[in-house]
């Protein structure tokens, strides 16, 4: 919100002069041939990362001195936008003269920093940070090929936001310590999710194993179970009505709902009435459960039985 975000500028306006120049005239563009590598007495590594169908692809060529592990020459080719080409070029530049072990430590953040005109102005707009991640990944790919190991062996921890390189453990800690509840807060505290936004929730540019919404959900659950205490151990009859409804919902979610849904049905909880010796739960069947014969016999007894067992109380289920 605010004056600066109301009329969007073009992303190109936010490219640094360095990015613009590299896009126009990349310095390390090209290939290293087998013959050239031999002449140098070096091992040739050709690593590909990304795919055209994703919108970005890069190939990195290294000529590595087998004695010292030093990268003698480093070239690239790239299918991608201006940021992808400029950051591939910068990455190739940063690799030259380093050992393979040193090169693996170069991240997309180093690449972005190297492309800044002034230290405190980002070289590319936030949503373009993503296009520089590929430059980092291809280094790992090349190093893995050189050393004959898997790429994953260079990842010390699980990275949730690749643009900002924020790890799972950092995120979990920051969320808990600062009691964060929104995506915006996470971005403010860690910068995770502020760039290409793929890591926020499923459906973005990239598929992830874990998303920021999952982390928020995890923490929210943790808080609820702390607040309510563990329902399995708490006396159902001592709960407030709201707690009771939640506890019943939870048991139904965990033990019953899935089976109903598989048969094309479902149920909703309408009300709870407390009596001296028992509690009545009023439910309504939905979908295929409506009019199903066993819904008033077998299924109903199964629901009652499960609730009684899980909540350790006398519960009657009444259908409406």
């Amino acid at each position: 919100m605010g004056i600066d975000s109301l009329i969007g500028g073009t992303i190109w306006d936010e490219y640094s002069q360095i990015v613009t120049d590299l896009m126009n005239n990349p310095r390390n563009l090209g290939e290293i041939t087998e013959e050239k590598a031999k002449e140098m007495g070096a091992t040739l590594i050709v690593a590909d990362f990304g795919a055209e169908s994703c919108g970005d692809a890069v190939r990195l060529y290294w000529a590595v001195d087998p004695e010292t592990d030093i990268i003698l020459e480093s070239k690239f080719k790239s299918f991608g936008c201006g940021t992808a080409i400029a950051s591939s070029d910068t990455m190739a530049e940063l690799c030259r003269g380093k050992t393979v072990d040193e090169a693996v430590k170069i991240t997309n953040i180093d690449v972005e920093l190297a492309m800044r005109d002034t230290p405190d102005v980002p070289a590319v707009p936030a949503q373009k940070m993503h296009c520089s991640v590929m430059a980092y990944d291809v280094i790992k790919k090349a190093a893995a090929q050189y050393k004959g190991v898997s790429m994953e062996s260079f990842e010390e921890e699980v990275i949730v936001c690749e643009c900002a390189r924020i790890s799972l453990s950092t995120l979990q800690e920051v969320i808990r310590l600062n009691d964060l509840t929104t995506i915006e807060q996470i971005a403010d505290y860690t910068k995770a999710g502020a760039f290409c936004k793929s890591c926020i929730r499923p459906g973005g540019h990239e598929e992830k194993e874990i998303y920021l919404v999952d982390l928020l959900g995890e923490y929210a659950k943790e808080k609820v179970s702390k607040a309510v205490g563990n329902n399995d151990n708490q006396d159902f009859d001592q709960m407030t009505v709201v707690q009771k409804i939640k506890a019943v919902e939870r048991v139904i979610d965990e033990n019953i709902r899935q089976m109903l849904i598989m048969d094309g049905g479902d149920l909703e909880i309408l009300d709870i009435k407390e009596h001296e010796l028992c509690t009545d739960i009023y439910i309504r069947y939905l979908g295929a459960c409506v009019g199903c014969e066993s819904s008033s016999t077998g299924t109903l007894y199964a629901i009652e039985g499960t609730l009684n067992q899980k909540l350790g109380s006398m519960i009657r289920v009444v259908t409406v």
Binding site: D48, A51, E206
Partner: peptide, 24 residues
């Protein structure tokens, strides 16, 4: 001329890193 993929068919041993990185 810059493109990593045009007029180039990668040897079978080079995979694109696509499978193990979820970069769809």
């Amino acid at each position: 001329g810059i493109s990593s993929s045009y007029a180039y068919s990668p040897p079978e041993s080079i995979d694109t890193g696509k499978e193990n990185n979820g970069h769809r």
